[in-house]
Design a protein around this nucleic acid. Sequence first.
DNA 1: ACCTGAACACCGTTCAAGT
DNA 2: ACCTGAACACCGTTCAAGT
Lengths: 227, 227
Amino acid sequence: MIGMTQQVRRAPLTRDRVLRAAVTLADATGIDALSMRKLAQTLGVVPMALYKHVANKEELLDGMLDVLVGEIDPPAAAGDWRTAVRQRILSARQVLLHHPWASRVIESRTVPTPVVLAYMDSMIGMFRTGGLSVDLTHHVMHAMGSRILGFSQELFGAPPSAPPPDAEIARQMAGRYPYITEITTRVAHDEASVVGSGCDDQFEFEFSLDLLLDGIEGLRLRGWTPR
Amino acid sequence: MIGMTQQVRRAPLTRDRVLRAAVTLADATGIDALSMRKLAQTLGVVPMALYKHVANKEELLDGMLDVLVGEIDPPAAAGDWRTAVRQRILSARQVLLHHPWASRVIESRTVPTPVVLAYMDSMIGMFRTGGLSVDLTHHVMHAMGSRILGFSQELFGAPPSAPPPDAEIARQMAGRYPYITEITTRVAHDEASVVGSGCDDQFEFEFSLDLLLDGIEGLRLRGWTPR
DNA sequence: ACCTGAACACCGTTCAAGT
DNA sequence: ACCTGAACACCGTTCAAGT
């Protein structure tokens, strides 16, 4: 027993354990509350011990995204490109919905990791084997942008989640923002019994995705070429 | 002269002066280097003096975005909806290009300010007066998402800006990411004399924007209705 | 050689003391 | 009543001292 410390009991710290703990902590407390110090604490370790497995916090964030990309379903083996791409992006979206902090972290990355590059490569492959030219695939990848990772690219997370305004404030809103009011009252009426919050996020995501995929398929059918 | 301090010389601190100084500082040093303390320093003021004009840093960031939205051109008076929307979004994009930190700040906002609401309202108005139904306009606003503010929604800022890899690394890349390589070599060949860095960002942005606008105009012409 | 406590150079914001 | 210095509770990371 002599010389045996509490540490011996713990599973040895690995890069993978660090990254997974960071994902769990961000899920639980949000990305703003994720610090190297708090992460070390949840692992029962001194802060500096983390720096053996990640060079710095940037590399930690990169690694956390790699974990999430690993959760996205692999591409379906058979079927047309449109269905396969659609399926995979909807899978990516599910991952992002389970980790709401991910979109802001992705936004802050400057260089893709090998894991993200591999994901992008396989996504490009789905367009290419589907019959899109190299040039068209190139522009399509730009057009899809972060949607390829399941981003909804909404302007605000959930603006209509605010408590229902009283009549006086509603009247002011209608005067100042007539067009917004026109839409929100329509939505409130349509879905009063369905959803309390407002829009159907899944419908909106699929509407946007299909708008792009339909446009792309149209270009492919018309044999789009540069210039 | 007695009792006259250095402060008397300075223009009095206003909310507007605080916000504009913050924008200038973020432009010059990046958003990560923007702190309440450094901002106060550039204004020749003690940090706590800022809190008379903004409640906290969140409100400062909101206000900075309001300044940028104010730089976007107002909608063109005449013309079809497609041209007017296109023009205005390209104007918003120019603003974002001049303030590269803006996209990450927008991403971090949770509630739109009155200034942003007014911008969204006028954008919705452009679709409505162009002949889109309330329902279609609603979904279209979701589909446009942050692109309405000039976002490119690219996955990474400038991935091909890396120094040209040597032959050995290039061979490894080609083996690991064959589809990415297929595109990047094509781009490098096409634009070798035009652009050193890689893609033509303006072209890619307009390609994506037109893909969406064409799709939307198609739905309008076909008289799209829900369900 | 490895590990780690203390220290450094920062943060945003509170609050009590000064005018 | 207004203003502000010091303090509080944090950061990410460096580095020298300990084993």
